[in-house]
Design a protein around this nucleic acid. Structure first.
Length: 486
DNA sequence: ATGTAC
């Protein structure tokens, strides 16, 4: 029977697929989105999110955020909380290959008017100083043993070694170092792939962007001010990258290991090999959890070094120190993780492993683990749109409990990379963007075509859906003026 | 996303 017959409208932005849809579903699936988003959704997402609903320990719902689209095993935009005291599993496909791919946002005290004459110079210099593209390596020279320290200490290692400011650490989830990362759980191959990649952007949808907060796009000036956006036309810097080849290798290593033991040792049957998993409370599950945390820390360190590099470049171009330029961080959010969190479910406190794959944590005001500065307003959420359109700064809200305090992470693709490459030419796109006032540098013209704005959902629709659903609140919309694309 | 196939 077609999926539409099963899809039940819960509200204007929440759609449910009951357990009767597919044998083995332990909980219903819920998809977030407006009627428009749902009508354009890739049908494969229904299949994937209902597969996720069959995994052991899944609590309440298998969910998909409004930017959701087809991914490896889980949809990208997938949220699944596993009860670790009830045989809950950990699944690499629910975290993503690019472990802790995420966004970081930094403000400046410069206005559009001041930056505009330098935009070309600024983007060109950033392009030189922040290595981008497939297989790129960074300027931080590390031995393999040093790198093992980095993946255990994350951004804290960077600040201790001169890359950044002490205050940066307070503005990263887990203060830039998730506890329990154990490099003994990492293969030599993963170390080999990662040790020279600190401070590199990567490729695909990874980018570094110079943006402007236009007056009419500051929706809540009080909240914006708390986050450092204090004036119209203020220039900010946002970037998106992850754990590069390192995280990819960690995911590959453990997917293979889980496939070997999942059924034979633990009797877990899954509907799709891409959902390979192991009980959280098993030697294999715990080993991956520790290894995945190394990926989380690698990614924090990567973004920390890039942040440092951006400060250096601005300082050079504007001939003032980064302090004088007010280059303070707003926040750093993780997209691809599984974290152990306490949540209240049906009135009871439970320990849940919350998988967020292409989804952002969005803690409400007053919750633990929010920096002091944001305690009263909620956790900042940084949403990167496609490079042509715009991005958003949001905050978490109390009604976010329905998604274990998770929201969207980006626009969400509507078109495959292959299709996008056929539909557009990178060179034309580059010129069109230039006309719109966005100066772009990219390592790859075909890569640029893959990231065309038209290959993505409308970011404004996605944010609107997230706000209407009560899973995050918008604060500022940010417009790009310069972009370095990996 | 990714030394875009070990």
């Amino acid at each position: 029977m077609p999926i539409k017959e099963f899809l039940e409208k819960i509200s204007d932005t929440v759609w449910e697929i009951p357990v009767s849809y597919k044998e083995g579903m332990r909980v219903p699936a819920r998809i977030y989105g407006t009627e428009k988003i749902i009508s354009e959704l890739d049908e494969a997402v229904y299949d994937q999110v209902t597969n996720v609903a069959t995994l052991p320990g899944i609590t309440k719902y298998a969910m998909c955020m409004p930017d959701g689209h087809f991914g490896y095993g889980f949809p990208i935009g997938g949220v699944a909380a596993m009860d670790v005291e009830k045989g809950g599993v950990i699944s690499p496909g629910g975290i993503g290959f690019d472990i802790n791919c995420g966004m970081r946002l930094m403000v400046t005290n410069l206005t559009y008017h001041e930056v505009k004459p330098y935009i070309k110079k600024l983007v060109d210099r950033l392009y030189e100083r922040v290595p981008a593209g497939v297989g790129s390596s960074g300027f931080v020279k590390l031995s393999r043993n040093d790198f093992r320290q980095v993946v255990e200490q994350g951004a804290q290692w960077c600040v201790n070694n001169g890359y950044g400011w002490e205050e940066d650490l307070e503005l990263i989830e887990e203060n830039g170092c998730i506890k329990g990362a154990d490099s003994a759980k990492i293969s030599d191959k993963a170390i080999d792939r990662g040790f020279n990649q600190i401070g590199t952007l990567g490729s695909g949808n990874h980018y570094l962007e110079i943006q402007v907060a236009r007056k009419l796009d500051i929706f809540d000036p009080e909240l914006a001010k708390t986050m450092g956006i204090t004036m119209p036309d203020q220039v900010v810097v946002m970037f998106h990258c992850g754990s590069r080849g390192f995280g990819h290798q960690v995911a590959t290593d453990y997917l293979q290991r889980f496939l070997k033991v999942m059924d034979s040792k633990y009797g877990i049957k899954i509907l799709d090999r891409e959902l390979a998993c192991a009980p959280f409370d098993s030697p294999e599950g715990q080993a991956y959890f520790s290894a995945m945390k190394c990926g989380i820390n690698m990614s924090y360190a990567n973004r920390q070094v890039i942040l440092h590099r951006i400060r250096e470049v601005f300082s050079e171009i504007f001939e003032r120190s980064a302090e004088d330029l007010g280059m303070h961080m707003v926040y750093d959010v993780a997209h691809n993780t599984a974290k152990l969190e306490n949540h209240v479910v049906d009135g009871k406190k439970r320990s849940l492993l919350v998988h967020r794959k292409g989804a952002t944590r969005a803690f409400a005001p007053g919750m633990a683990d929010i920096p002091e500065r944001y305690k009263n307003i909620g956790q900042p959420v940084i949403i990167g749109g496609s490079m042509e359109t715009g991005s958003y700064l949001l905050v978490g809200v109390p009604t976010g409990d329905q998604t274990f305090f998770s929201t969207a992470h980006g626009s969400g693709r509507t078109m495959s990379r292959t299709k996008a490459r056929k539909a557009w030419k990178g060179e034309t796109l580059l010129k069109d963007m230039q006309k719109k006032g966005i100066y772009v540098r990219s390592t790859s013209m075909s890569g640029l075509a893959e990231e065309a704005g038209a290959a993505y959902k409308d970011i404004d629709d996605v944010i609107e859906a997230a706000e209407l659903a009560g899973i995050s609140k918008k604060v500022v919309r940010l417009t790009p003026i310069g972009n370095i694309k990996g």
